[in-house]
Amino acid sequence: MKTATRDTIFGLVMLGASGLLWLETTRPQYDGIPALNYGFPPDFYPKILLGIWAFVSVLIIVRSRMIAQAEAEGLHPGKLVVSMAVVGLYCWLVGVIGFLLATIPFTGLFMAVLGYRRPVVMLAVTALFPVGVWWLMSGPLQIFLPESPWFNSF
């Protein structure tokens, strides 16, 4: 994608977002309580920010029309989407089956997604790293990570 096109799309998205957030501030909860807000209701400051946000977005669109086209830096969308999907799935699984049960398969899978292919190292890291982190957190550091619904201790 060209940088100018990319910036135009970004400016339009941000302009749209500022409009939607402005609409949100028109809801009754933003009127506040006059006795408490001294004439500056809860939407006063966000509206200033949204005004500047919209103005800067317009300037970004205008600027994108003025700069010459150049090719934007490309990423491999396939690898990006797969890595995001695996991390997203992991985040969800941590809450459902607990930290330890989710982290063990994630560790192996994510190394493979990133292109690592040494089974012995992968197996060792997959077995030791999640258990080590879990032990360190719930033991010495007393930070209790999400537990599975099937076991009492992890």
Binding site: V87, Y90, T103, F106, T107, F110, M111, L114, G115, Y116, R118, V121, V125, F129, P130, V133
Partner: peptide
């Protein structure tokens, strides 16, 4: 290895 490192960073 970078993949091992980045996996640990995520966790």
């Amino acid at each position: 290895p970078e993949p091992v490192l980045f996996t640990m960073v995520v966790v």
